[in-house]
Simulated scan of single mutants.
Amino acid sequence: MDLRNRHGIITGAGQGIGRALAIEFGSRGAHLLLVGRKESTLTATARLVEAAGGSAEVLTQDLTLPGSADRVVEAVDSWTTIDLLVNNAGNVRAGRLERTSEADIRSMIDLNLVAPVLLTRALLPRLRAGADRDSIILNISSGIALVGMPFYSVYAATKAGLARFGESLRRELTGMGVHVATVYPGATDTDMMTSQNAGADLGWERRSLDDVISDLLSGLEAGEHEINTAPQGRREMQRLNISDPMAVDAAMAPGLADLESAVRDHRSM
C-alpha cells in the first residue's frame, strides 16, 4: 500500500494511537480531518501534523450523537479526494458486568461499534471513487477481540464486532478499490491505559506506542488486512484460545481476584 499523500479522516485523533497515526500520515504528506470531542487536543494534533509535513483540519464532534456521520461528510464535502478513513475513536470501562452502568455499556457500544459502522457507511461512496489507487479503511480493534479478557465483556464485544464488521466489509468490497484492514493492538502505553494497573504478571504486558505504530504501518504498507501488534506472549495465548479455550480459562482462574482489583478503576470515557 502506498501511504503517501493520503486525504482522509482520523477519529479519536486527539491522543494515543489516533494522534500517532495522524503524525505518521502527515509525515507522508497527508491532508487530514481530525475528529474528536476536545478541540484543544485536536488542535495540538493538527500542529504536530503540520510540523511533520502534512496539513490538517479539525472537527469537534461527539460521534455517538445522531447525525454525527453526516457532519463529518459535510466537513469534507469540498475535498476532491477521500482515500483514507481511520476508525480509531473508542472508550472503555472495565469491571464486573453487573456493576457496569447501563450508560457506560451504551457508551462503549455507541462509540466503539455503532459510530464506525455509520461513519464508514456515510463515507463509502467517496472512498470507492478513488482514481488511481485503493482507498484505505483502517479499523482499530483490539487484541481483546481475539482473546476475551475477564472484566472487559462489553468492551470485548464491541471490538470483536468491529473486527467482524471489517472482515465482512472487506469481502463485500472485493474488486471495488477499497483496502479494508483491521488492527489488533495489545495493551499499549497510552493515556487510555493510565487508570489500569494490571501488568505482565496478569497477562497485560504493555508495548510502547512507537512500537505498536511501527508494526501497524509496516503491516499496512505490506498490504495486510489483519494486523496484529500484540507481544509474543499474548500471541501464544491467542493461538491457545483457538485450539484449547478451556486451557486459557484455567490459566486465568488463579489470578482473577488480583486482575479484578487491578482493572476496577479502568475507565476512559
Rank of each mutant, 00 (worst) to 15 (best):
V92G: 14
Y184W: 08
I109L: 15
A89T: 07
T190L: 14
A157L: 02
G26I: 00
L173V: 07
D134V: 07
H266T: 13
T174L: 05
R164S: 08
L97R: 03
E102Q: 13
I227S: 01
W79Q: 02
S153H: 10
A30W: 00
E24M: 00
D83R: 07
M269Q: 06
I137F: 07
S261P: 01
A181I: 09
D104C: 14
G90R: 10
D110K: 03
D215N: 14
L21W: 05
L169I: 05
T41Y: 05
G199L: 08
I17H: 05
L138Y: 09
D104A: 15
M193E: 12
M269P: 14
A20W: 00
L127G: 02
G26F: 00
T80G: 13
F25K: 01
G130L: 09
E221F: 03
R126E: 03
M149R: 14
N5E: 11
T81L: 14
A46W: 01
R267W: 15
V117H: 07
R133F: 03
A56N: 12
N139W: 03
I17Y: 04
T45Q: 11
E98W: 12
A52Q: 01
L32R: 01
T60D: 02
N139R: 02
A51D: 09
E167R: 12
V72D: 02
D2I: 04
E74D: 11
G14H: 00
R126I: 06
H31S: 06
E50Y: 12
G255P: 09
D215Y: 04
S268F: 12
A262M: 06
A200W: 01
M108H: 05
R267L: 15
L42K: 02
M246Y: 05
S243T: 07
W204P: 05
G199I: 03
S195C: 08
K159W: 01
I144T: 15
L240E: 01
A251T: 07
G166F: 00
S107F: 09
T100C: 14
L146I: 10
P185R: 10
R4D: 14
D134N: 12
S168F: 01
D201K: 08
A250W: 07
G29F: 06
P125E: 07
L209Q: 02
E24L: 03
A222N: 11
A187G: 11
M246D: 11
L59K: 00
E39W: 08
V263N: 08
R171H: 11
L48Q: 12
T120S: 10
V92K: 13
E74L: 10
E39V: 07
D189Q: 15
V86N: 00
L220W: 13
V92L: 14
T174D: 06
S141I: 13
L173E: 07
M237G: 11
A222D: 08
Q238G: 06
E102Y: 09
T174I: 03
L173I: 04
L173M: 13
A145L: 10
T120A: 09
M237S: 09
P245E: 02
A230D: 04
G219C: 15
P231R: 10
L123Y: 01
L97V: 07
A253C: 04
R71C: 05
T80H: 09
L85P: 00
A251M: 13
T64Q: 12
H179S: 04
